[in-house]
């Protein structure tokens, strides 16, 4: 089977599984909702303040919620030794990785689409800069989180206390991406600065780490 066919088959399987169980999306949504409410209570910001802190709040909420989905990525494949079957199958390792990363991307984008209206409502947000730029920021930022997250989840699945291990690996490595997402969002919301530099940085981060993941995933999958 070709790389593309395996990717499509695995992605379709994961999306169907999620559609039927809704495990990841439900837990992510509830988690992100809790973060929004708790932050809103603890800071109680007015419209001007919230414009300034919303970029940080939104992305921290999404980062925490994404970890919930990322942890389930490979854990699902441990049951019935599915991961071992993948290892011995002739299917290319990278297509498996791409399918998992794309699946997580879809989950997190759905989460963002559902949570953004809530954020706007609770924090009375209105962008003073070019709001359309939030779309590339969200797309590139989400990919930055899930591509490394999927890779690190494949690592943490091999460790003791794996649920704890993923954020310990993902957060330090995501600092430049997180900084770029937060600053780009804040720049767009306040309309004071241009977000272009941060968008370019996010794109660079995505390209560098997507290539690194694809080059190294096979050795990680086959590590014994």
């Amino acid at each position: 089977m070709s790389l593309f066919a395996v990717t499509r088959a695995t992605l379709a399987k994961d999306l169907r599984l999620e559609w039927r169980s809704k495990d990841a999306i439900n837990s992510m949504l509830f988690f992100a909702l809790l973060v929004v409410v708790v932050f809103s209570f603890s800071f109680d910001p007015n419209a001007e303040e919230s414009r300034r802190i919303a970029g940080g709040l939104i992305w921290v909420a999404f980062l925490f919620a994404a970890v919930v989905a990322l942890n389930q990525t490979w854990a699902r494949e441990l049951r019935n030794q599915v991961l071992d079957a993948y290892r011995v199958s002739p299917a290319p390792a990278n297509s498996l990785f791409m399918a998992k990363a794309l699946g997580n991307f879809v989950f997190v984008v759905v989460l963002e689409a559902l949570m953004t209206p809530l954020f706007i409502m609770f924090y009375q947000l209105r962008a003073l800069g070019p709001a359309w730029q939030l779309i590339p920021v969200a797309a590139l930022g989400t990919w930055a989180l899930v591509v490394n997250g999927t890779f690190f989840a494949a690592m943490s699945i091999r460790t003791r206390s794996r649920e704890i291990m993923l954020p310990l690996l993902l957060f330090p490595f995501s600092i430049p991406a997180l900084l770029a997402m937060v600053n780009a969002t804040t720049a767009i919301l306040t309309g004071e600065l241009s977000a272009r530099f941060w968008i370019v940085l996010l794109a660079t981060y995505d390209v560098v780490f997507t290539i690194a993941c694809l080059l190294l995933f096979e050795s990680v999958l086959q590590a014994e």
Binding site: M155, T159, R160, M165, L168, L169, A223, E224
Partner: peptide, 13 residues
């Protein structure tokens, strides 16, 4: 985090 990974992963991998 590198040292944490080394500490928590099972020895062979």
């Amino acid at each position: 985090s590198y040292l944490m990974l080394r500490r928590f992963s099972t020895s062979g991998q």
